[in-house]
Amino acid sequence: MPVILGEIKVLTRPLSVVRICELFSTCLAFSLEASLESESIDRSAFKHFCTFTWCFFFVLTLLILLVDFIQFQSIIPLSWKNLPITVATLAALMGLTSSVGFACFVVVRWEDAKAVAVTVCSCLAFLAYASEVHLIRLQSREQRGYMASAPGLLKVFQVFGGCVMLLLLSELEPHKLSNWYSWVSVGMKLLCFFMSLGTVLVMLGDCAGRCPLPFDRLLAGFCLLAVLLYMAITVLCVTEILEISKTRVTFTKLTDSIPFIETIVACLILLTYTVDLAFSVKLLCDRA
């Protein structure tokens, strides 16, 4: 089929301008990060997380910009109302994490102008993606999809929180996963992560109407199960902190602070699931 190019004014719209800024800032971020000397940056899982974030969302943003310009939305087997807002929200969250983490773990320890430039570019990318989320949410209800609503944004945050939990897990030393409750906690985190990820994928594929069960009730059940699981995860995290506090007074390594970060993230995810459950219950009550 022939390629149909859009008008040049498509690239001058506020959304397109913001996406071009996203491309520019993310490209600069991973390009400068790749040029850093190997001895001046910690080759940890977090470094790979930052690089993946900038490269992955650069590619996705480029594809979204091209599809919007060429006007191929109708042949994409995804919900175009939900895809851009989902990508922008997840990119803003992961970009913020990369910016703060890169500044704390790299710039503070190494006096390198390129490392500072990487952090600045990452911050600019975060601001650009946050601006895109704001612009999409300003659109009319007919132009927005489910993922632009409050429950949809909460589900994106839940997926993001699951990614952060897995990242923190990869930074732990192997002997710290020897306890039985550590493996139980990992299993519960993975279950919640896959439930939220599955929900987002169903919305992106516009497959909610094909579900053999009432999808709104299924979402409410998922949220209730996730709230119960994350209540248990939070209790396990607090218990681990109390045990560490009894046996250790000072924290000399970066990995020693991971249980505290994990507890904070678990509390935030528990809060999002609780609010999401409230939205689901309200929706069921309104339909009843």
Rank of each mutant, 00 (worst) to 15 (best):
I75R: 11
S140W: 15
G6S: 04
E37K: 05
C285Y: 15
L268N: 01
W110T: 09
V106E: 06
G162S: 02
F193T: 04
L197Y: 00
L191V: 07
V107A: 05
T61H: 11
G101D: 01
V184N: 05
I4D: 15
I261G: 04
L28N: 04
F56T: 06
Q71E: 15
P151R: 05
V118A: 05
L284S: 05
T255E: 07
A130G: 03
V281L: 09
T12A: 13
S131A: 12
S99A: 12
T239D: 12
V100L: 15
R144Y: 02
I241G: 01
E22I: 02
R109G: 09
V17I: 06
I269T: 13
A266M: 05
I85P: 03
I264F: 13
C104P: 12
F72I: 12
C207M: 15
L191E: 03
E33M: 07
C211F: 03
D68C: 02
V18H: 04
L32K: 03
G221H: 14
L228Y: 00
A92N: 04
L177V: 03
S40C: 11
C55A: 06
G198C: 11
L127Q: 05
I70T: 11
V10P: 01
D112M: 03
R248M: 15
K253M: 14
V184C: 12
Q139P: 06
S44N: 02
F56D: 03
A148M: 00
G161I: 11
Y129S: 13
R43Q: 02
F251G: 01
L229W: 06
A208D: 11
C50A: 09
E39T: 11
L268A: 06
F193G: 01
V67S: 07
M1N: 08
I76K: 00
T119R: 10
P174F: 12
M147C: 13
T263S: 05
A208Q: 11
A266T: 14
A91Y: 01
A278D: 14
P14S: 07
S98R: 00
V238R: 05
L83S: 00
T89L: 08
W80V: 00
K282Q: 15
I20C: 14
L268V: 14
G205C: 07
R144F: 07
F57R: 00
N82T: 04
I136T: 15
A266P: 00
L219C: 15
Y230F: 14
W110I: 08
P174N: 10
L63M: 08
I261T: 03
V265T: 08
F126P: 01
I4F: 08
A88G: 01
L66V: 15
V67M: 07
I258K: 00
D276G: 13
M203C: 05
G205Y: 07
F215S: 02
W54T: 09
E243F: 05
S16D: 14
G162F: 03
A117W: 04
S44V: 00
F160R: 04
I244R: 02
D216F: 11
Q158M: 04
